[in-house]
Amino acid sequence: MADVEITMHGPLFDGRAAREFADYCDEAREQIAAFGEEHALTLMGAAFRHPTGYYESHIITERVAADSSRVHDQGVVYGPWLEGVGSRNSPVTRFPGYWHWKRTKALLALRAPVMAQRLLDRYLPRMR
């Protein structure tokens, strides 16, 4: 009978890969959320006819769980009206809304995978 000793070492076995992957997920989430906030604010800046700065100053990004972040307007009462989903939008009034959140969400759906992949390419060498 022969004894066999197996020694495993490297990032996968000593926890470095798991830590790098967790760091990657955090950074990807933060970058994507920051891009979403910036894009929404850019749309608002281009579209709002008489901006006071109040609504824009209430746009924040917050981490809502270990693996997700949310960009929102902190519940500003006229936020739904500005977006176009309020009860006082068209057809009640002529104002259809700016659709800044809907357009930002659509752009994020397209760009987030590309952003995450680009970032992953930077992290993969550290996991080997």
Results as ranks from 00 to 15, higher is better:
Met8Ala: 14
Thr42Phe: 07
Arg49Gln: 14
Gly97Thr: 01
Thr93Phe: 10
His9Gln: 13
Ile32Leu: 00
Arg70Cys: 00
Arg19His: 07
Arg103Leu: 06
Val92Ile: 11
Ala33Pro: 01
Leu43Ser: 03
Phe35Gly: 00
His100Ile: 00
Leu41Asn: 03
Phe21Arg: 13
Lys105Ser: 11
Leu108Trp: 03
Thr7Leu: 09
Arg122Thr: 07
Pro91Glu: 06
Gly84Thr: 02
Phe21Leu: 08
His58Arg: 15
Gln117Phe: 12
Ala112Trp: 03
Ala17Ser: 09
Ala18Lys: 15
Gly86Thr: 01
Arg88Pro: 04
Lys105Phe: 01
Tyr78Lys: 02
Trp101Ser: 06
Arg88Thr: 13
Gln31Arg: 12
Ala22Gln: 14
Tyr54Lys: 11
Thr104Phe: 03
Gly36Lys: 00
Phe21Lys: 13
Tyr24Ser: 02
Ala65Glu: 12
Asp3His: 11
Gln74Trp: 00
Asp14Asn: 15
Gly86Tyr: 01
Met115Tyr: 09
Val114Gln: 14
Pro113Gly: 07
Gln31Val: 09
Asp121Ala: 07
Ala106Met: 09
Ala34Leu: 11
Leu12Phe: 14
Arg103Asn: 07
Ser90Lys: 13
Lys105Glu: 13
Gly10Lys: 04
Leu120Asp: 04
Glu30Ile: 10
Trp101Asp: 04
Ser69Asn: 10
Val92Phe: 03
Arg49Lys: 15
Val114Met: 12
His58Phe: 06
Gly84Gln: 04
Glu5Leu: 10
His100Met: 08
Trp101Leu: 08
Ile60Asn: 04
Asp3Ile: 08
Ile32Ala: 08
Arg94Asn: 10
Ser68Arg: 15
Arg70Ser: 05
Lys105Trp: 02
Asn89Cys: 12
Ala46Asp: 10
Leu110Ser: 14
Val77Ala: 13
Glu20Cys: 11
Leu12Asp: 13
Val92Pro: 00
Val4Lys: 12
Leu124Met: 11
Leu12Asn: 15
Val76Leu: 09
Ile32Pro: 00
Met8His: 07
Met8Lys: 13
Leu107Val: 06
Leu107Gln: 11
Gly36His: 01
Ile32Asn: 01
Ser68Gly: 07
Ser69Cys: 08
Ile59Met: 14
Val77Leu: 10
Pro80Arg: 08
Tyr55Phe: 14
Glu56Gly: 00
